[in-house]
Structure formats: structure tokens, C-alpha cells
Design a protein around this nucleic acid. Structure first.
Lengths: 248, 248
DNA sequence: GCTACCATACTGCCATACAAGTAGACAAGG
DNA sequence: CCTTGTCTACTTGTATGGCAGTATGGTAGC
């Protein structure tokens, strides 16, 4: 039977698999804070919005639940998770550890071949710096991803993306509040270290860079208290001591 | 209506949510190589085995697909993935990066408080060394996890567990073939470095330890060729240069 | 004997219906 | 006013039916 889809708010491609489409769409809406924390979303409600049945939506919910973006309470409902401070810090810690090693690989190995590429991506960030914050985030993402690709660890990047969701939510929450200039300069410092073959220097620069968010985090939490979970921030997280001895 | 479940091979608790149960059961069977790579499994077949409907099984498949344990071919079937060499190496790389930082935290910070605990876990490994390989794996797991817990990064451990699935399959495949003595000695070396507050030494010891599997991997692949994907092993993966200059 | 075709029996995907449980409104009784 | 029981309108969980696409095995034609 032909169902009238004119009540659908959002569009889906009826020929392609629907479940993954809904999943991507919802993921995007949550990260961009279109769907806000604690907001209740039901399978039937979303199904109606997209003009599909409950089943694909349900599958999307399950996957989002694995990502920690929604919590499914059996027989009670599903709602968007608050941003877990612990999850953000864990994701940041993982990212620093991995990218530190990647940076060392680049500095010690044939990273010099990619220096021009990296500098080009940094230029793109400069162009987007003051105009479009979203574009800057994309450029930033591209830069870090390029470093992973350069050492053949691109697949790894995709695997940890689900862990990065919470970090991404923070970034979109603080859109335009980032010290873009400083971040770009830090990127440049990393590449300089790589170009010079200075593994220690490049690593310190990268760790320093990825810790920038830590200093901004308290302010962001204070500004948007009801976006974060009530986890008492007593458990200050540990930070690896930098080689230079500075504690940031 | 009471349905007769006497045709069910495996049991499930009909009161608790079924999907997660099936998921855990299948995950276990795959990792323990009860379900072998390339083996085709269908929703209806598994559903019949557990005496449930296809829907929960489908949800289990989806989650296992996210973990990279099965591949769902639309309209064609679902089969157990071969062990992806790239995935194994990626997981190992991530693990080395993270645990290297954790080790540094322990050596630089209050890791000394936990040295006795770590040594106790190593003793447990010694006891299980020659008797029960499975128990040794559990003890090994407990040791590494304890280090993460000691610096408040225990939650992180759970998050990367899905990435570790492929590594775990390798471990169960090579049950009893591991150089247990050597591994235990390496554990001891790591703890010694922590106890001495020697961050560099402890880190090198840990990286050395986690690279042990790399030397065993080719042999394991040769012995069980049809458990691994046909990815031509041409792309040798990059390894971070150790501080001491040794390349393992 | 060999090849091309086709019927059939699968597969996973989607939609729908039913079941089980919860939250909240609301009225009756203390 | 407060408590309590019930009833309704939700929620997610499970089961089932139908659909479109694919692999396979048998068969007709050469």
C-alpha cells in the first residue's frame, strides 16, 4: 500500500537502507544540539518525523545507545544523554595518547613528505578562522585526520570516532568561543616539529594542543550547566607529565 | 500463549531483555571460535536455536556488526568475519598508546601505592601459568585493567573493549602457545619501573611487552590461514620508536 | 556433454500487530 | 489537604507477515 509520506518532516532515501540513514541523522542532530540533553524522544515520534516505521528507528536508537548518545529505559522511554564529563575526559585522554604516538611516527619517519599537505590544511583553517566556525571545526578535523592517514592509521580514526561523540558535542556547544588563532599556531608548532624531525618537540606540542580544551571545559560547563551530567567534578583527571617538565 | 521452546538448543531468560542476551552469547561463541570465520548464520537459524523470534536476533547481529565480528550482506546473508589483521594491529596500537600513558602516570604519580596489588596479580599469573591457559588470559586481563583502574581510567577500559574483540580472538586462537614466562617477566619489569618511579623505563617495558604479540602474529596466521582475512600483509604497520633506540 | 535459463528456496529488511510495563491524571475516601 | 486506587495514554520489547533481492539446483535446448 502506498503510504502518504507528506507528514514527514525530514527526508530519507526510500531505496537505500533506512536504519543507518536515521542513525546518522539523529547522531548529527544530537551532536549539533538540535536535540538537547534530557529531551525525550520516542521511536514512534521519530518514525513519524521521517515517515518510516518504528523498526529502523529502533535500530538507530540501539546504535546511538552504544555510542552513549541516548539512554534507553525499557518500557519507560528514550532520552538524549547529557554530556558525560568523564566520557569527554576519557575520549580526550585516548586521543592524546594515540595522536602523540602518531606524531612521533611522523617526526621519526617519512612525515616530512606530508609537511606541505599539513601546511595546506592549516592555511584552510586560517581562511575559515573568523568567518565560519563550523567550517573551522571541519578543517581542524581534516588536519588531525590527515596526520593519522599519513602513517596508515586512517582506519583507526574511524574506529575511535564513536568515542569522540561526546567531545564533538562540547565543540559544537562552544562554537565560536574557541581561541582559533592559538589553536592554529599550535597546529603550526606541531608541523614544525615534524618537519624538523624533532619527535619530542612535536609530541609535546601536540599534547599541549589537545589539552587546550581542558582549560576551556570548566567555563563551558558553567555556561551550559544543564547540558552536562551532574557528576560532581571532584575527581580531577590525571594528566601525563610532559617531557619538558611543564605542567601546562 | 505458551510456546513450546523444547527445540531451543541454547537457553535464554525469557523475562530479561532477549536482544542483549543473544548478543553476549554470540559474541562469546565467536571469540572462542565456536562459530568460525566465514560460517554463515541467519537470523531465523539463530532464532530457532535460542527459541526466540527473529527481531532480537537481528538487533544482536547489528551490534555485532558494529564490533566487526560479523558482516551483514543485505539480502544475501550474515557470516562471521575473518579476523582482520588491520583491525588487530589497530587495536594493538591503540592499546599500546593508552597503556603507555597510563604507565607513565603510575610511575610519575602515586602508582607506588598499588605496586603490592600489581605484584599480587602477577603472582596469580604465575600460579595459572602452566595449568589453565584460559585462566592465565583472565589474570593477564586483570593485571592490565588494574593499572587503568589505579589512575581512574577504568571506564576507559570498557569503552575500548569493543575494539579489542579481534585481539581477543587471536588470543583464544593461540591458546597455550604464548611464552607465558616471558610475558610474566615483562609484567614484572613494568611494575619494577613503576615502583622505581622510572617513567621512561616503565613505558619502554610496557611497549616492549605489548609488541610481543607482533612477533607471534605471523606464526599464528600461518598456522590458521583460514581464520584471517586475505589482506596481503604487504602494508607493514608502523611502530613508534622506543626511547632507548632499540627497535624490538 | 555443455550452456543458458528459470523456478524455488532462501536471505535480510521493513511494516504492522500484539504484549508488557510505566507514568500521570483524576477522582474517591480518609 | 493528603493519600490511594484506578484508568488511560503513553513507552519499549517481541512476534509475525510480506517484500525485494540473491544464490542455487534442476531442466530444457543446443
Amino acid at each position: 500500500m502506498l503510504v502518504k509520506r507528506d507528514t514527514a518532516i525530514h527526508e530519507v532515501d526510500q531505496t537505500a537502507p533506512i536504519g543507518p540513514q536515521v542513525r546518522r541523522a539523529l547522531r548529527e542532530r544530537i551532536i549539533r544540539n538540535d536535540l538537547k540533553p534530557d529531551q525525550k524522544i520516542s521511536e514512534s515520534e521519530i518514525a513519524a518525523q521521517y515517515g518510516v516505521s518504528r523498526q529502523p528507528v529502533r535500530e538507530a536508537f540501539i546504535r546511538l545507545s552504544d555510542e552513549g548518545l541516548v539512554t534507553i529505559l525499557p518500557q519507560r522511554g528514550t532520552r538524549v544523554c547529557r554530556i558525560g564529563l568523564a566520557a569527554v575526559r576519557d575520549a580526550r585522554f585516548i586521543r592524546e595518547s594515540i595522536e602523540a604516538d602518531i606524531t612521533r611516527l611522523l617526526a621519526d619517519g617519512q612525515g616530512a613528505d606530508h609537511v606541505d599537505e599539513f601546511r595546506g590544511l592549516i592555511d584552510a583553517q586560517r581562511r575559515a578562522a573568523d568567518t565560519d566556525p563550523v567550517e573551522f571545526i571541519r578543517a581542524d578535523e581534516a588536519f588531525h585526520r590527515a596526520m593519522a592517514d599519513a602513517v596508515g592509521k586512517g582506519g583507526l580514526w574511524r574506529k575511535v570516532q564513536s568515542l569522540k561523540s561526546q567531545m564533538d558535542r562540547v565543540r559544537f556547544l562552544a562554537l565560536g568561543q574557541f581561541p582559533v588563532r592559538k589553536l592554529i599556531d599550535q597546529h603550526a608548532a606541531i608541523v614544525d616539529g615534524i618537519a624538523a624531525g624533532d619527535a619530542d618537540g612535536a609530541e609535546v606540542a601536540l599534547r599541549h594542543h589537545l589539552r587546550e580544551v581542558l582549560s576551556d571545559l570548566p567555563h563551558i560547563v558553567r555556561t551550559n550547566p544543564d547540558f552536562f551530567d551532574a557528576a560532581t567534578d571532584g575527581a580531577e583527571d590525571q594528566i601525563v607529565k610532559l617531557k619538558g617538565g611543564e605542567t601546562v
